[in-house]
Write a protein that binds this DNA or RNA. Structure first.
Lengths: 122, 122, 122, 122
DNA sequence: GTGGTCTAGACCACG
DNA sequence: GTGGTCTAGACCACG
């Protein structure tokens, strides 16, 4: 279970954790049924507050990525994640388009961008 | 000049504006030298706070997308955008990777994702 | 905006708030676009902590009942609520069935139960 | 004796067991005098902690649904259930109302809801 | 003014 | 042991 906090990343800590865990699920590094570290274990090892980890876990639960149950460790859900709001698909398209735009405007070549995307899709 | 606010998008309003304007620049709908609406015009037409539009314009200026000069309308810069912080390239990679991950976890097929990306790169 | 905390209710405070607000939305006492009290206003008036109110609001946001946006008051969403997890419909049926069962086992007559349900459906 | 645990149901496991057993009693699938599986049998077959089953049985005993005697299997009580706390009737009304509200907000039609309720009352 | 994040710490409930 | 709830208080970000 490799998780870390990037001080330079502008995003809140809990969102970084959410992003990293989702990525590991997406890459099948984490599989359905796998347990996540306990809230206290993870907060201790990352040097952050328990509640910050919990916030990330709650977010993942709401997105249908993990199952939280009192007294048990969090584990990866076997079902499909929630699409959330009815127009979530549109939000995801927008975010994808805008992150491509940002890459273009920052000087990434179309080839580099496609390479990053394709590698992520493997 | 087509800008809109999506109530369902969780991002702050100013970020939505930044994203939309960058997209229009990237697609050459807005070209160097083109003028943007005044802060007041835009805030009135969208029914949002003037501060919010101002905030978006400042952000675009910092990214080297537009030129702001006192008493003049904002206009699209002809130079190339700033990469900003030294680690911006890595941030952009991360965002791109995570937006692909989100799409995957939401059930988008690799083909759909590539299609969206390629269309954006045209 | 009539909200209260019932000391005898076993459920956590934030869930009571969620339940009450959902009920008011369902009865159209709260309509799409209506604003909820600010987190601080509500926590002060109920004599509870800010974070407890916030927890309720987050829950309502995740259920698609309200829109939260930084710097603005929470407001009732105009869209349809989230069904959440794919089998949420089954969960809701289960809860409904079990609450009827509880009423039966507690001595409520079928007529009383139907009356409560019908009144709620008006 | 058909009992199961729904991973997606957020409620604690012991509450799910209590709910299912009460439902079977209410539908006369379980009749006064019928024996429940031993704590160990049930915990083994469901793959859960013995404490959890024990907890469910204690709850059922407190509600007057089953009789527990040392060294004997739990059996369904022939008496009528306890209302428990003096405000239990109001709690039950609240739960019933709120589960109807949840169904409404999740898009169930009044007809569907009445159908579920009536079927449960048969 | 209002929401968002984070820390710290207490105490409870479930398994 | 582990998650769940609540309080208290600080500081930041958006509008």
């Amino acid at each position: 279970m490799l998780l870390s906090i990037n001080e330079r990343d502008n995003r809140p800590i809990y969102q970084q954790l959410v992003g990293q865990i989702k990525e590991q699920v997406s890459r099948s590094i984490l599989k359905p049924g796998d347990e996540l570290p306990s809230v206290r274990e993870l907060s201790d090892s990352l040097g952050i507050n328990m509640h910050t980890v919990r916030r990330a876990y709650l977010e993942l639960r709401d997105q249908g990525i993990i199952i939280l149950r009192l007294g048990r460790k969090a584990k990866i859900s076997s079902g499909k994640p929630n699409l959330g709001q009815s127009d979530a698909a549109e939000s995801i398209r927008t975010r994808l388009r805008e992150s491509v735009t940002d890459a273009v405007l920052s000087g990434f070549s179309p080839e580099e961008i496609k390479k990053i995307v394709n590698k992520q899709l493997e």
